[in-house]
């Protein structure tokens, strides 16, 4: 969608126009779903979270002050929605910091079929949840370790450790 048109759609949606909000959904659903899928690692859960994100966005939209791009605001909201949903289990998963011994790295959920070259998305889905979350937030969504620590409630060092772990596992999976 043209950025100018998008800006007006945002303003119309803020004023309560559901059709304008539908247009915003069409423009952003792909990116939000992609992030939810990568964070959740499961298509059904990603669909649920995508719905949650847009419902929450509708509720919060009147407070959007146009101080950042709408897409930036929406993606931060999406991260928060997914994190809030998975907070209890993710905190546990995220805190599993195993950096001293690479051998202690958890194995991916399931091994790919022998002889099948994996792409990054397929490899990510097989990552342990904690490592996957940090990798998605850091390497794909561009958040820094301090922001990730703030969003998830883990220590910065743990975030770094999980990133190391995720990259190592992904390399192993993709190197096959």
């Amino acid at each position: 969608m043209d950025p100018d048109a998008l800006s007006l759609e945002v303003r119309r949606a803020q004023a309560g126009d559901a059709d304008a909000f539908a247009a915003l959904y069409r423009a952003h659903a792909g990116r939000v779903y992609a992030m939810c899928l990568r964070l959740e690692g499961d298509p059904a859960a990603a669909e649920e979270r995508t719905q949650d994100v847009f419902v929450r966005a509708w509720d919060r939209l009147p407070g959007f002050r146009h101080e950042s791009a709408f897409s930036t605001w929406l993606h931060r909201l999406a991260v928060n929605v997914v994190l809030a949903h998975r907070r209890a289990t993710w905190r546990r998963d995220l805190r599993v910091a195993v950096v001293e011994e690479p051998e202690l790295l958890e194995s991916p959920r399931a091994a790919p079929d022998p002889g099948t070259r994996m792409d990054l998305d397929a490899a990510m889905i097989r990552l342990p949840p904690g490592a996957r979350a940090v990798f998605v937030l850091h390497d794909i969504e561009g958040y820094g370790h301090a922001e990730i620590a703030e969003m998830t409630g883990i220590a910065e060092g743990t975030s770094k450790a999980q990133l190391f772990r995720a990259r190592r596992l992904l390399r192993r999976a993709l190197d096959r």
Partner: peptide, 10 residues
């Protein structure tokens, strides 16, 4: 950067 949901969620 974008993956379309498998069905229309709107």
């Amino acid at each position: 950067r974008s993956i379309d949901p498998p069905r229309d969620l709107w």
